[in-house]
Write a protein that binds this DNA or RNA. Structure first.
Lengths: 212, 212
DNA sequence: TGTACATCAGTGAACGCGCGTTCACTGATGTAC
DNA sequence: TGTACATCAGTGAACGCGCGTTCACTGATGTAC
């Protein structure tokens, strides 16, 4: 679903920067007010612009949401790249630290945890309600899974482990548990407790039979 | 957090019924419009009343949300009871069927799957944004976990299985995976694929050493 | 059982505020000579 | 480099709609004798 931009002109650097600032502001405002609860005024003001500037850059509020989805995707991929790098550099991490590191890249694309979790949940709900976004959201998830698969494969090799269950099941289990813990952590004062994740890892991995 | 009702009078049967109809309507409207996106008019109309009736029964929209949270809790507990009954009656279910049966009682309290999932997610997000609701929501989750623990204990005994990981970790893993699959199913046309759940169960259970 | 009155539950019109969106404008940036 | 003009990006006032909430009212239910 390619949404035509407001203008077909090549966008100037100044314009791109304004858009970027509006999107960044929207992330924060959406996270704490909700997509429906956030007003165009709040977003514009948080970005340091008037409402007019908003409408000069986005056809309407729903185009912003679309842009934000795309932005989240990009941010997530960048965070994944970064995580791969960190993982390769890390030498003395435990299995669940390594896996949590990998997974963390996939919620909120490296944003503050609470904000990223709430925004993702908000976007998911929004996409669920708009049939037009179902396809886009599925692609988003699928691509995320693909990148996550690469990361986890690396991590396992690095640790000398292999899964005792089919790889794609393992992936879904890890993602599910990570998401769940992150969501509950929003209501706690301390960060998420990694104990359940550790149990899961112990249960679904074993030393690799084929050392490299 | 005990919210005082609009009136302190004992509520008449008629009044109770109106409240009930408004709450039922609100569940459906919240699920597909979002809590913020649903108007008092839509809700009242769906229940077959005027807006005035709404304000005769709830101080304002946020009191309705509170009532709905309480209602969800009650519905969930009732569904849990029912699930226990069904489980005791069932004789020839596989392990993951039994566990999925138990878990299903805990999302949406026996409502249509899609509606229940969306509403729960909506309530969670709402509670996350209102610091005043954090405590109530935590209690809600804690009580749910307690009931789920009872259900799962029964199911395991029935199946002659025990967990290979600490019981409360197992509980969190099961809940996490179930939630995750339910949420993804909203975007698919078919119901959730139980394969990942099956893998999880295989990985974290073993035949019980202490037969009864 | 019937009548007179009091209270209750729900109606629907009205109000005012905030929001999304538009638009005539102005100051900033870019271009041509 | 400087001036004249054209285009672009953002401003802020204005508009109108929909929403939450209020309230004077009416028909329904309950009570007393």
């Amino acid at each position: 679903v390619t949404q035509p931009s407001v203008l077909d002109h090549p966008i100037s650097a100044r314009r791109a920067q304004t858009r970027e600032r509006l999107i960044t502001a929207a992330i924060a405002v959406f996270a704490d007010r909700g997509i429906n609860g956030a007003s165009v005024e709040e977003i514009s003001e948080a970005a340091g612009f008037s409402r007019g500037a908003f409408y000069s850059n986005f056809a309407d509020k729903s185009e912003l949401v679309l842009a934000l989805l795309a932005h989240s995707m990009t941010a997530q991929f960048a965070a994944a790249e970064r995580a791969i790098g960190e993982m390769k550099a890390a030498r003395d991490l435990s299995a669940e630290e390594l896996v949590t590191l990998a997974l963390s890249a996939f919620e909120g694309g490296g944003r503050p945890a609470r904000e990223g979790v709430l925004l993702d949940q908000e976007l998911q709900l929004h996409a669920a309600r708009e049939p037009a976004l179902h396809g886009a959201y599925r692609d988003f998830v699928a691509e995320g899974d693909r990148q996550l698969a690469a990361l986890i494969t690396d991590a396992l090799r690095h640790l000398g482990l292999e899964f005792t269950v089919p790889f794609d099941h393992a992936l879904r289990l890890l993602a599910a548990v990570h998401e769940h813990e992150q969501r509950l952590a929003v209501f706690e004062d301390q960060p998420a407790d990694p104990a359940a994740m550790r149990s899961l890892l112990l249960a679904i991995t074993r030393p690799s039979r084929v050392p490299d």
